[in-house]
Computed example of a mutant assay.
Amino acid sequence: MKRKAVPIWLAFFTAIILLAGCSESAFHSEEKTTLILAENQPVDYPTTIGAKEFARLVEEKTDGRYEIKVYHGGQLGDEKSAVELTQLGAIDFVRVNTTPLTEFNDQIGVLAMPFLFDDEEEKWNLLTGQVGNDLLDTFAGSKLVGLAFYDSGERSFYNTVRPIKTPEDMKGLKIRVQSSELAIDIVESLGGSATPMDYGEVYSSLQNGVIDGAENNFPSYYTSNHYNIAKYFTTNGFQGAPEVLLASQDLWDTLSEEDRKLFKEAAIESIEVQREAWAELTEVSRETVTEAGSELVEVDDINEWREAVQPVYDKYGDEFSEWIERLSAEK
């Protein structure tokens, strides 16, 4: 299959990585085309499980004409590097979280807004419906093609100091956030002191009191061992930005209309397997941290939290107004 050219240095770099991890003598033949999918999580992580199901379905639906090799564990670089390689056509597919994707597509950032959905059922009805499909289409012009959303759970706050039940309890707490203006604004609207920091520094910073807490989903809270230090976990699910499965525009342009349809179907059908794997890991994580002594603080009234983050909507409302209105209208 003829593919668009990529810079020599990039092609050489990618070839070294691929040849080191694959014993096949060729990636293309008349009978089968082998494609590449970049995944930065471990082999047994839910997003990797979803990516492998997508690969299986593509091979099944195309009667073996296409095979997708999933390179997990960041073998092809970090998320940003993998997205850039996908834009250049050196990688065919990539799975990445919504938050870093805002650098490549401003509109997708609406999904990182706080308390955007009422519950999980509503969220997935919207993401797998017409408005979700239209959001995926906003990648047009970025050399990327949006295929499907994957589950990344709900992000909540946890800390070493006290139970957080209301926004009032956030005041004065130093909370680690991602290096994102939106993430900073959310925490500060709640009265916390936002502290941008690399994820790898969070554990020691919690130990040393550099920060009082952080925010993430249950599996990350568990697998990072943050629960050993920060015992108070507030289940308010303030943010639910999903993962996104993307294809390279270079690859997409080589596919027939029928094959594009089959690839898209495979992506959509893989969501169920990925979400089941996420639900299982979330339940295991929840049980483990509870048994280890974490206090899960249930939030009774989300409305007061929504009211507290209104300044965030005031600031970003114009930028995301079209999508916020559509998401609200289709609830």
Rank of each mutant, 00 (worst) to 15 (best):
K261D: 15
V83T: 10
G21Q: 10
P167T: 00
E265V: 09
N303Y: 00
E258A: 13
E24A: 11
L19E: 11
P114F: 00
K143R: 13
Q107N: 13
F263K: 05
R162L: 01
R275M: 14
D169V: 04
F117E: 03
G172H: 13
N236G: 01
D212L: 06
G192I: 00
G77C: 08
D106M: 07
Q107P: 04
Y316S: 07
R176A: 11
V297E: 10
D118V: 09
S142M: 01
E215V: 08
A308D: 07
I164L: 03
Q249M: 08
L245K: 06
Q87L: 02
W124C: 14
L101S: 12
H28I: 10
G74A: 11
I164M: 03
V145N: 02
I175A: 00
V70H: 10
T288S: 10
V161S: 09
F12T: 15
T102F: 01
L10N: 07
L57T: 04
L147E: 07
K61P: 02
I302F: 02
A82G: 10
L18S: 08
L18M: 11
L136Q: 07
V94E: 08
F12Q: 11
W305T: 11
S23M: 10
K52W: 04
A292S: 14
N208D: 09
K32E: 13
A194L: 00
E307R: 14
G293L: 05
K123W: 04
T99V: 10
A183N: 09
L136V: 06
R65H: 12
K61V: 00
A140L: 02
E322L: 12
L126C: 12
N225V: 04
D259S: 12
P7R: 02
S193V: 12
S156T: 10
Y221A: 01
L173S: 01
L57R: 12
D92S: 11
L85K: 15
E84N: 08
G213E: 05
A241M: 05
V6Y: 06
A55S: 14
A5Q: 13
K32F: 00
R326N: 13
E330F: 14
W305C: 08
S204W: 06
A279K: 11
D198Q: 11
V299N: 11
D92F: 08
V83K: 08
L246G: 07
E154I: 05
